[in-house]
Simulated assay, not measured.
Amino acid sequence: MEDWLTPGRFAKYLNAGGGDPQLGLALYEWNSEIASAFLRDLGHLEVAVRNAYDRALLTHPEVLDGEWLTSASCELLFAPHIANDANGQPQDKNATPRANVKAARKHSGFDLGVVPRGKAVAELMFGFWSYLTDDLHEKSLWVPALHSAYVPGADRARLHAALSALREFRNRVAHHESVFDRQPENHRRHIVFVARHLSPDLHQHLTQHSRLPAVLAARPRATR
Rank of each mutant, 00 (worst) to 15 (best):
N15P: 00
L206Y: 09
E2P: 00
H176W: 13
A162K: 13
N186P: 00
V215I: 11
H107E: 13
G18M: 03
R117G: 04
A52S: 13
A52G: 05
A79G: 02
L198S: 05
T207C: 12
G118N: 07
L124E: 06
A35F: 08
T207D: 06
H107V: 13
A52Y: 08
M1R: 14
A120E: 04
R98K: 07
A35T: 06
M125F: 13
S108A: 08
L14D: 00
K119E: 01
L112T: 10
L39M: 12
A157L: 13
L76D: 01
S199E: 06
A165T: 12
P116D: 14
L136N: 04
D111L: 11
L141D: 08
H187T: 07
V151S: 13
S178I: 00
G19M: 06
R167E: 10
H203S: 10
V49I: 14
L76V: 08
L69I: 01
A16K: 05
V143K: 15
R50Q: 05
D135L: 07
D54A: 09
L202C: 08
R117Y: 04
S130Y: 02
D201P: 01
V194S: 06
Q183A: 15
R219K: 15
A26H: 06
L124P: 04
R219Q: 10
L69Q: 01
S164L: 08
G113S: 07
A222F: 08
A154D: 02
L132T: 08
L39Q: 11
A217E: 09
F78I: 03
R170N: 05
Y53R: 13
A83T: 14
N31K: 03
R172Y: 00
A86T: 10
W30V: 00
I34G: 08
K119F: 03
P90S: 01
P97A: 06
H197R: 14
Y13V: 00
D54Y: 04
L146H: 07
